[in-house]
Computed example of a mutant assay.
Amino acid sequence: MNNFLLFFEEMPVWQKLSWIVLILGGFWILEGYYALVKFNYDKWKHARTNFIFLGFVLLINTLFGILTAGIFIWLDKTQFGLLQLIELPTWIELVLAIIVLDLIAQYFVHFLLHKVKWMWRLHLIHHTDTHVDATTGTRHHPLDFIIRESFALVAVIIMGMPVAFYFFYRILSVFFTYFTHANINLPLRIDKTLSYIFVTPNMHKFHHHYKLPWTDRNYGNMLSIWDRIFGTFVYDQTQKIRYGIDLIEDSTSDKISYQLKIPFNRSIKTRN
C-alpha cells in the first residue's frame, strides 16, 4: 500500500498531464461512437473554447501548487488534523480522506456555487455550455476554480492527510470529471445501478438542464451518496434534458470574451 501511494506522491508533472490527455481524449473519442445526444455542432470549435478554460485551470493549478506544498509541510511539522488523532490501517485512512474531500471540495462547494449569488455568477460559465461533452468538465471560470481549490485545501487541513492521499484523490477526480460530462450512452441499467453509489453520466446530465429544478440537483462529483443524503438527487429520462442556462442566450456559448465577463455583466439577472 505504501508503494502504491508513493507512486502518486512522486508522480511527475508529465505523467499527470498525460493522465488528463488520456482520460479526456478517451471519452472524447468514445462520444463519436456511443453518443447520448447526436449534436449538430463543430466539435473542434466547441473543444477549443473549453480548452482555453482548461489552460486557465492548469495555470491556477501551478500557482496553487506552491500554496499546497506549504500546507503539507506545515501539516507534517505540526501533525495537525483528524487523521493524526486516530490509528487506522492506511487504506481506511485513504478512503476517509477521499470521502471528506468529495463532500467538502466537491458537493458542498458546488452547492454553495449555486446558492450564493456572487458565486453563482462565477459558476454560470460552466452551465452556459449548450453541447455538454467531455470537454465541458474543463469549463470553469478561473475564479470559480480558485474557490474549488481553496475548499479542497480546507478539507486537507481538517483531515491532516498526507500529500499522497491528496494526489490520489486528484487523479480520481480527473477521471470522474470527464466521465460524468462525457456525451456517452451508457446502458441505462448500468448507469442507474452505478448511480446508487457513484455519479454517472446520465445522473450528472440532469444537473446541466437549462432551468430549475434540475439545475439545482445532482451536485456530486464522485459519490452520489451526498445527493441522496441531502435530498438533491434526481434521475429521470435524459430525453427531457436541454443544455444551457435560461439566464443567458445559447448563441454566446463559445464566445470566450463574453463568457469571462458574465460574472460582472449586470444585464444578466440571476435568480438569487
Rank of each mutant, 00 (worst) to 15 (best):
Y235R: 06
N61K: 13
F7Q: 07
T130L: 03
L101P: 01
T215Y: 01
V100L: 09
L113A: 08
Y243S: 08
R170E: 09
I99L: 15
E31C: 04
L24F: 13
R271T: 05
R189A: 14
N3C: 03
I92A: 15
L143T: 09
V37A: 04
S150V: 10
A105L: 01
R48H: 10
L63G: 15
F7H: 12
L260S: 04
F7N: 09
W19V: 03
H126V: 11
L172V: 02
F176Y: 15
I20V: 13
H110A: 08
N202H: 14
H181M: 01
E93H: 07
R228F: 01
W44P: 00
Y235N: 11
P89V: 04
L96N: 04
Q15A: 13
I125Q: 07
F72T: 01
I86Y: 04
K269S: 13
I60N: 12
Q79E: 12
T180H: 06
I125G: 02
G137L: 09
A182T: 14
T232N: 06
L59P: 03
D42C: 02
I157K: 11
H123Y: 13
I229H: 07
Y258S: 09
I262Y: 02
F165Q: 02
H131L: 01
Y107E: 01
V95S: 11
V234Q: 02
E9Y: 03
I23H: 05
K38N: 15
M11D: 05
E87G: 01
F206H: 03
I125F: 04
D246H: 14
K45E: 11
F4M: 11
T49V: 07
K269F: 13
G137E: 04
S173W: 08
S150N: 12
K115E: 10
G25A: 07
D246L: 06
E93F: 00
F8R: 09
L124Q: 14
V95Q: 10
Q84D: 09
L30N: 00
R170H: 08
N265F: 11
I190H: 05
T130Q: 12
P142N: 08
A155C: 10
I71Y: 12
F111I: 12
M1H: 15
T252D: 12
Y41A: 11
N221V: 13
I158P: 02
W14I: 14
L36H: 01
F165E: 13
I158N: 08
V95Y: 10
I248D: 05
K77P: 04
I73H: 00
P213S: 08
P213T: 11
I171H: 07
V116R: 02
K240T: 02
K16G: 06
I20K: 00
L58Y: 09
L85M: 15
W118G: 03
P213A: 07
V37Q: 06
M222C: 07
S150K: 06
L188C: 07
P201M: 04
P142M: 07
H131K: 14
K77A: 12
W214N: 11
Q106C: 07
S195E: 08
L24T: 11
T62H: 14
T62V: 14
W91D: 05
I248E: 04
V156W: 02
